[in-house]
Nucleic acid binder design. Sequence first.
DNA 1: ACAGCGATTTGT
DNA 2: CAAATCGCTGTC
Length: 198
Amino acid sequence: MSVSRPDSIVDTLWLARPATEVAPDLVGCTLVRSLADGCCLRSQIVETEAYTPTDPACHGYRGQTRRNAAMFGRAGLSYVYLIYGLYHCFNVVTDCPGLASAVLIRAVQLSHLPPWASPKDHQAPHRAAAGPGKLCRLLKIDQQFNGAVLAPETGLWLEHRPTTLSQPLVQTTRIGLSQATDLPWRWYLANSPAVSKP
DNA sequence: ACAGCGATTTGT
DNA sequence: CAAATCGCTGTC
């Protein structure tokens, strides 16, 4: 008899592929955040971007530093970094150890907002986690998760998506970059109100 | 050392 | 459109 945890992604093999293959497959997956007080937040990933070792826009493109070390780790780790000194961005590490490869989670949609969501979030609930910095703030994802394993034990993990997506997947260019702006490595769920920039 | 800038968000 | 504000990068 094994303890049933059928939905959590214990196996990380499917993440050990190039970020450009994993990124579209992460759309539609559930991102779960469980907090020490027992509060559990479930959200659907609606927008992702891929970053690869040969990609000038990738943080690891110019080699490993203390900040980006996690993205050189094994698939299934989380890479969290601070942007503009005040927002965190959350990535799922992919591909083989030694390769700087990750998928940025740009937007999620929550079924229920947590108590600490702002009044503005409640006015437009589907926009509350529309953006990489906003979703980290809302899900309380910060540097403590940098390099952490994505698993129920750490309080942050993935669950498989349904076999068929509710909407078609759209592939476009990435957002906010000054380099490699032409690579079509952004994916999002068509018609989703939770996407950072439809 | 130090200036400049970024996978962002918000308010003017 | 500018501010907020930390860490990495290139240059002096």
